[in-house]
Design a protein around this nucleic acid. Sequence first.
DNA 1: AATGTAATTGCAACAATGTTGCACTAAAGA
DNA 2: TCTTTAGTGCAACATTGTTGCAATTACATT
Lengths: 125, 125
Amino acid sequence: MKQGRNTTAKTEILKLINQSDVALSHAEIQLSLEGLCDRVTIYRVLDRLTEEGRIHRIVNIDGGVKYASCTGCSAVHQHSHIHFSCQKCKSVTCMEGIEPAFSLPAAYQISEVNFTVSGLCPQCA
Amino acid sequence: MKQGRNTTAKTEILKLINQSDVALSHAEIQLSLEGLCDRVTIYRVLDRLTEEGRIHRIVNIDGGVKYASCTGCSAVHQHSHIHFSCQKCKSVTCMEGIEPAFSLPAAYQISEVNFTVSGLCPQCA
DNA sequence: AATGTAATTGCAACAATGTTGCACTAAAGA
DNA sequence: TCTTTAGTGCAACATTGTTGCAATTACATT
């Protein structure tokens, strides 16, 4: 969990993600940055931020990838909360605190989970 | 839930998926078919089979898409069961019968869920 | 403040995955 | 058998993500 260098791209991308209340896709970030840096750099910064535990990667129900800030995982870095994906406005929201209960046969070794629920968000319902 | 025409491609692809005990990707299916039909046709057949409720689409934790047969959803077509994704052998397995318990605020309208757990499967652990 | 070095970036090129339009083919009901 | 139209192949394109390499830049150290 080491901290890399603080570059303009990294700072701006992190700011965007932290200020957003929904998860952002690479494409959305690229639009917001208005050519501040290369497409490839955004991919690399997102990877780095994820590795550093500053943001987390969400695979949406449609296969699209989004990124959201890591609120409240300063201590334990866990993202077993539910992500809600709105079919209408396409927003993806972290449902902090809502963690589904489940159990698998002991033979399975769990290291990561991804729970996505899709439907209509309060705004669109 | 109408039934489209029964073509060679459709029959073969459905057979492949039904005979497999793990979920298959487009690429894997294409390999197995050995040029029986076009790449594009496979995409279209998979879409159709999914619409007809014969197979279900799984978005893996890494964003990859796989398809698995619909065992036991003849009556109610539901796929809220957990999918286990092995990080070593890359297999994706439907954990039929294991459904996580969760609850969201009433304002959210749920229409679909995708629960993926990744780690090591019994064979790789 | 100047400097060294390793992390970071831009560019170009590539790979994988998925979509669309259109002419042609073939499944299945009449 | 004929007719209709769902399904297919091909070509072309779009999106998303990756890699190699030379140029740049953050930042620890002088």
